[in-house]
Design a binder for these strands. Structure first.
Length: 553
RNA sequence: GGGCUUGUGGCUUAGCCAGGAUAGAGCGCCGGGCUUCUAACCCGGAUGUCGGGGGUUCGAAUCCCCCCAGGCCCGCCA
């Protein structure tokens, strides 16, 4: 309803004034929507904006009734207030299963996220990528797109060669620890060995050459090391409610000849330079740095495989979305520029800034990181304490299940609520906070709504809203589809997080001031209808955020 | 040094791209509310030179320029 009414008003303003730019602003406490068009017209016509606003408002009023929409000039502003038909229409939509979903679309989306190097467990920086990516994947699905989420597995780079070298000297003997954590220990130890004996670098170079040539023995070793680590990573992702539709192995693009084919095409580009190395001159695209694709020893670098990967994606999907850390900005730009030169599709890239620790930036190699597994364990423990304190009467397995859902909600929400372009410092105190502006807070509002609905008997959907708390809540419910659309358009999932929190806020105030079960007749039916619409909207919003909509907690 | 990015009450943060009506939240602080639908809640209060300076505009947190500070990048790593 919101999007329809917005569109209706702007179309009307266009036809009345002949102006194209008639975007509306939020009316705040004055109105639901407002127009500042009178200011613009005042300058052109050399007349008072107040008079113009008054005239326009009158014309708008005459231009047909649109569901009880109120139009009023207030000084130079034209204010619009939604009527009861709007509320009724919005609530009816909000009661339906899947509220907020858009009609199916044809476009296929390849959404790549996480793609952490399999040389250790995911840490709190990696999961910013995972959570942004998974949330976007859910939002795009809701918006009707056919989405395939992909993990691009680096199974061939130098870091993996270091792991393979480490395993060959240290062996594989995880001491009761999770495999990916063991791999990190091997990686850290191997790096230390390299520092003490630079001669090892030559051994690692040989490993890389052999794996790229397809040397059976080495290929198997690489694949085993990566698989072991990936199993651990997958376990962590599953706990976070994240799964990928496809794991794309980087080495596949070498084996199937794609990398060679890209290299051949690139050599024919006028911007290609072939000396010791093969590189592309991108100065015309404002990149001073050489974009190197092949080393002097003939092996390719990551960039070459990345080009092959994106060409493959571009030919099999309509839209490519990559979630990448801000450290990938330069190479992301170089990649896109090169794809354009080749006449291939370019990805849309969402860059997010880094998560650091209070003592400095994280580093797997230096063993300086907080693993996602440790984070999940700590938070689940705290959540279990909270659940037991409040709901001691519940069976332990029920409490455990609630605690896990609460913990994941806390983690996911805490990360997704911040705009991606903000660099953050990981803070245990904040991570363990289950109060307002947290995932559990929103889950709690949902559980309260469920509790009311469970205690109520059958009721007839009714749409007589009178109390300001009711109206404010209903108006916010109506915005949900527009939020989904906005997140898709701007790739900014934190807008959905903020929306869900505001909805929970409004519901909690309503809950405190407006009795539902103790009211009677039409009032009771209307309030139950509103509670149900809220419950359903909260559920859809939470699930789109990858958070369990708990019915009790 | 160059490029990208961020700077909003003590702390965290929304709003900035598409400029409008007293800058919106949370934490913390002060005070109030559970014989009443789950208090992981609600209500009230104090706290802001929107990093600094200039400019554009009827109007700037928002656009432009300069400066300062933090983060990231500038590898034959990924």
């Amino acid at each position: 309803m919101y999007r329809e009414v917005y569109h209706q008003i702007t179309e009307l303003l266009r036809s009345l004034t002949g102006h194209e730019d008639v975007e509306l602003i939020e009316g705040g406490e004055h109105a639901d929507l407002a127009s500042t068009l009178a200011f613009t017209l005042a300058r052109e016509q050399h007349r008072s904006p107040t008079v113009i606003a008054q005239e326009l408002a009158e014309k708008l009023q005459k231009s047909g009734d649109s569901g009880g929409l109120q139009v009023e000039a207030k000084g130079p502003y034209i204010n619009f207030n939604f009527g009861s038909a709007y509320l009724e229409g919005s609530l009816k939509a909000a009661l339906k299963k899947g509220y907020g979903a858009m009609p199916s679309r044809y476009e296929r989306v390849a959404l790549e996220h996480t793609s952490a190097n399999p040389n250790g467990p995911l840490h709190v920086g990696h999961i910013r990528n995972s959570i942004l990516g998974d949330t976007l994947s859910r939002v795009f699905k809701k918006a009707g797109y056919r989405v395939e989420s992909q993990y691009y597995v680096n199974d061939i780079g130098r870091q993996i060669a270091i792991v393979v070298w480490g395993l060959s000297t240290l062996g594989f003997r995880p001491d009761g620890e999770k495999e990916d954590h063991y791999i990190a220990r091997v990686y850290i130890a191997a790096n230390r060995s390299i520092e003490n004996d630079p001669g090892i670098v030559a051994e690692i170079d040989r490993l890389m050459q052999r794996v790229e040539r397809g040397d059976k023995e080495v290929v198997v070793k690489f694949r085993q090391a990566v698989s072991v680590c990936l199993d651990g990573i997958r376990e962590t992702l599953t706990a976070l409610h994240i799964s990928h539709n496809r794991y794309v192995w980087e080495s596949d693009f070498i084996r199937n000849g794609d990398v060679e084919r890209v290299i051949d095409r690139i050599r024919k580009l006028p911007q290609a330079r072939e000396e010791e190395t093969l590189w592309i001159d991108l100065t015309a695209e404002n990149f001073e740095k050489r974009y190197i694709l092949r080393r002097s020893d003939g092996t390719t670098v990551y960039a070459a495989r990345d080009l092959a990967f994106h060409i493959w994606k571009g030919r099999n999907f309509d839209i490519m979305i990559d979630i990448l850390g801000s450290d990938h900005k330069l190479i992301g730009g170089q990649l896109s520029a090169t794809l354009r030169m080749l006449g291939e599709k370019s990805p849309v890239i969402l860059h997010f800034e880094f998560v650091s620790l209070p003592e400095g930036s994280m580093s797997t190699r230096a063993g300086k990181f907080v693993s996602a597994d440790d984070l999940i364990t700590e938070i689940t423990e705290k959540a279990m304490e909270e659940v037991t304190k409040r709901r001691g009467e519940l069976a332990e397995n029920v409490r455990r299940s609630i605690a896990h859902s609460v913990a994941i909600a806390a983690i996911r929400y805490n990360i997704v609520k911040v705009s991606p372009e903000k660099s953050t410092v990981f803070d245990w105190r904040e991570a363990l906070d289950f109060e307002r502006q947290s995932g559990p807070y929103i889950q709690y509002a949902h559980a309260r709504a469920c509790s009311i609905l469970e205690k109520a008997d059958e009721f007839t959907p009714t749409y007589q809203l009178t109390d300001p708390h009711e109206v404010a809540l209903a108006k916010h419910i109506a915005l949900f589809p527009a939020i989904i659309e906005k997140v898709v358009g701007e790739l900014r999932p934190h807008l959905l997080a903020a929306y869900a929190r505001d909805l929970a806020d409004l519901f909690n105030s309503f809950y405190r001031y407006v009795p539902v079960l103790r009211s009677e007749g039409i009032t009771r039916d209307s309030r139950l209808t509103l509670v149900q619409a809220t419950q359903n909207t909260l559920k859809e919003a939470l699930e789109t955020l990858g958070i369990d909509a708990l019915t009790t907690m």
